[in-house]
């Protein structure tokens, strides 16, 4: 994706997704087959009131959005939807820190895209969660199969 297209995608992607917008997500960066999103810490997203740790569901939403974005930036992709998504929670996200997710679409067939993703807080060496997913892949007409 050219620099200008990248910026355009980053600007428009979240704006078109009401739920991702409600969670304050933003596109940080993207490459040929990967996208990096992030989401602020917000007391409204807390899942464990005694520790202030973010709810797993909010991390799922971030991972799902990021994975879908990694599929959508494929040049032949006209649309996508999640078929399944598995998330492994390795540790609690540190309260107060921004969550960053990075997803890579590592393989596409004629109608399916495969994605893996991880979520991190400030400690980038120790991911908070990882995910693998399968997505529908609607090809643009005339696209190579």
């Amino acid at each position: 994706m050219a620099g200008q297209d990248k910026r355009k995608f980053a600007d428009q992607f979240i704006a078109a997704l009401p739920h991702s917008k409600a969670l304050g997500m933003g596109v940080d960066d993207l490459g040929e087959n990967w996208v990096q999103l992030s989401m602020p810490y917000d007391p409204r997203f807390v899942g464990d009131p005694q520790t202030g740790v973010i709810h797993g569901g909010a991390i799922s939403a971030l991972m799902d959005t990021c994975s879908g974005a990694a599929v959508l930036i494929h040049p032949d992709c006209e649309g996508t939807a999640t078929l399944d998504l598995r998330i492994d929670y390795m540790r609690a996200a540190t309260p107060g820190q921004r969550l960053v997710a990075r997803a890579e679409c590592y393989h596409v067939t004629r109608s399916v895209a495969f994605v893996r993703a991880k979520a991190m807080d400030d400690d980038r060496d120790s991911p908070v969660a990882s995910a693998t997913g399968a997505f529908t892949f609607a090809r643009a007409k005339g696209g190579a199969s």
């Binding site: 009401p18 739920h19 991702s20 709810h55 799922s60 939403a61 991972m63 959005t65």
Partner: peptide
């Protein structure tokens, strides 16, 4: 409205759905 992920269909956001089931 804030639960929508695809405004064109429209459809619930997969992340909101996942969060609902996890809750």
């Amino acid at each position: 409205d804030m639960l929508i992920g695809n405004p064109i269909l429209p459809a619930l956001h997969g992340g909101a759905t996942a969060a609902f089931l996890e809750v």
